[in-house]
Amino acid sequence: MGLNRKVSFVEGLKYQGGGPMIAWMLHRITGVGIVVFVGLHVLASFFMQQVGSDWATWVNTVYESWIFQIFIAFFVIFHALNGLRIAILDLWPKFLMYQREALWLEWLIFLPIYGLTIFILVQKSLAGG
């Protein structure tokens, strides 16, 4: 069975997939983002320890700022929760009946966790930490 769809990029954008499509797109974007983030972090930490280079120190300083941490918290928490939903639905396909509800449940779990993270990060930055 060969699966070969020929859909152009513009046609792909017109596709009205709704919630599941948004979750799929966000999963890909956050996944690639995490690979870039962790890869750069490993490289930067390696060069900071071994050579003490300026750009590596700069990268890690950016990573420690609270604005960057708000972004990376979204990437990691969303990717983890969406991945959990995908893994559960794929390993127990009976639950696919409730995939819309699973998506809502995922956002319901995501929002308080991410909101609390933002609250702590902003509170700490306002306190000057």
Partner: peptide
Amino acid sequence: MRARTVRPG
């Protein structure tokens, strides 16, 4: 964007 060709098994 084209899907990858994947064989079952």
